[in-house]
Write a protein that binds this DNA or RNA. Structure first.
Lengths: 260, 260
DNA sequence: CGAGTAGTTGATCCGAGTCAATCGTCGTGG
DNA sequence: CCACGACGATTGACTCGGATCAACTACTCG
């Protein structure tokens, strides 16, 4: 139900990179025809994950990195007391498990929030391929670098911004990401529970609930459960960066995709 | 006031990687003799930075990545209203400016907190060298991956832990890092101001001050301005991870749905 | 239908921010 | 050599944002 907007048709999981609608956004972008063919030889696709299925779990042996093809993935860790901490929500085009390369085992867990198609890239083959395709190495460096920059921005968010600012930034990021995939930036489904948004933003779920209510009453949003409509983007952006974030704010989100 | 030109190429600091005391920690570790020689050919060393000098500034054109050889570097950004946000303190052996690779310009600023020696690595040469030395590429992937994992941990810290927990984690991290460089893990100088610690941890400097006082009174620390002595490491560790940070979690914890 | 779960709303409390006063140290100049 | 001002650190008093606790509502699913 709440997946209607994000699902792609069933045949896509057989499709090649060449005619994938994400080919300009993902790891394989900027490769020429020959290189793409080589790349494609190491990519594996399989049956989609269903909601609640894990792609990998923390402390599993590390083998692959993954790209989300459609659907969405929640990335988190579980602590000893059972509490979880959510590091991110991955939408189509994004690369998963980069944080796990150094350790030999997955540093976090990844679970599908809805029916989700995945491209699987065995890491050793990939590393070897990077030796043959400088573009590919370069691209991974760049993606890793953006991940670091993005993580820094989130640290800033968590360390210095209050609840409504965090929430506004979150909504705009979601909007952007969803927009990148060709859907409406103003009307979209949030695939995650309130509790997960709260956890991700370092807040209590009651706080998120109150913010939804308030933004709804103030005419900034129109909220119907998980269906969100942004009614006043200007105001939302003003809340997200009050005095203005540092110069090129949110640029990191677009650089994977934007042309160079 | 402006130090943009402060990297002067004297060939004076000839200390080679081969007999550098950091060679097992830094980017060049795990290279064989031949590879190390190639690597060394692209590394540049120059006069040390003095306290308050910038290594680079945010939005400068991106050219190099850097390794701290001795001293320490503060990494931060400045926001439009002049407020700053500190992302990290870099001690010897650490690699700087990874977050800037994707953008073509430095995403943050780096300033010396004391007299600091630096190894400078022109990024284009480095990228080319990675094509010839698989180990080097692998190493950079790993360092980038650890940076991401580290950033995730800090997000967890900022999102979910209270002031004394953050502070304890910070002290232990400092202790570890300093210990890695062969100094005492229990008695050390903090090179940064209280305000900077506070900023880094997302707290007010008064809070940090109170924590120093409290930990001192409780016999956990002995504090003399910037000289710190850890008197009760056990207790400090207990504060840093109350129920235990994230675990080597085993799969028996069967939650909602799972298994693929 | 009924039970279980997610979300909302209200009441209360507490940790840490803010404001303000004071102290100590350092560096400068008379 | 001391007086002075500047700045960082400490301490206290007060405030407030958001967590926590506790009902209550509304779906969803069996």
């Amino acid at each position: 139900m709440d997946n209607r907007h994000n699902i792609v048709n069933l045949k896509t999981y057989q499709a090649s990179c060449t005619n994938c609608n994400l080919k300009d956004f993902c790891l394989a972008s900027h490769l020429d025809v020959m290189e793409l063919e080589q790349f494609e030889r190491i990519v594996e696709r399989s049956q989609p994950l269903q909601r609640g299925q894990h792609l990998y779990r923390q402390s599993d042996k590390f083998h692959n990195i993954y790209i989300v093809k459609s659907g969405s993935i929640k990335n988190y860790i579980t602590m000893q007391d059972g509490a979880e901490c959510i590091f991110g929500f991955y939408l189509p085009g994004e690369l998963l498990a980069l944080d796990s390369i150094a350790k030999g085992e997955y540093a976090s867990s990844a679970i599908a929030q809805q029916t989700t198609y995945i491209c699987k890239i065995p890491y050793p083959s990939f590393e070897r391929l990077c030796q043959q395709i400088p573009h590919l190495q370069e691209k991974l460096f760049q993606i890793a670098a953006s991940k670091i920059a993005e993580a820094y921005n989130r640290q800033l968010l968590l360390a210095q911004r209050n609840s409504e600012e965090r929430f506004a930034v979150f909504l705009l990021n979601q909007s952007d990401q969803i927009g990148k995939n060709g859907y409406s930036k103003n009307v979209f489904y949030l695939s995650m529970a309130r509790q997960d948004i709260a956890n991700y933003l370092g807040l209590a779920c009651e706080t998120i609930s109150r913010l939804f209510t308030r933004f709804n009453n103030e005419g900034i949003l129109q909220v119907k459960k998980k269906l969100i409509r942004i009614r006043d983007q200007k105001r939302l952006m003003a809340i997200a960066s009050p005095t203005g974030l540092y110069p090129v704010q949110t640029a990191y989100r677009s650089e994977l995709n934007s042309e160079s």
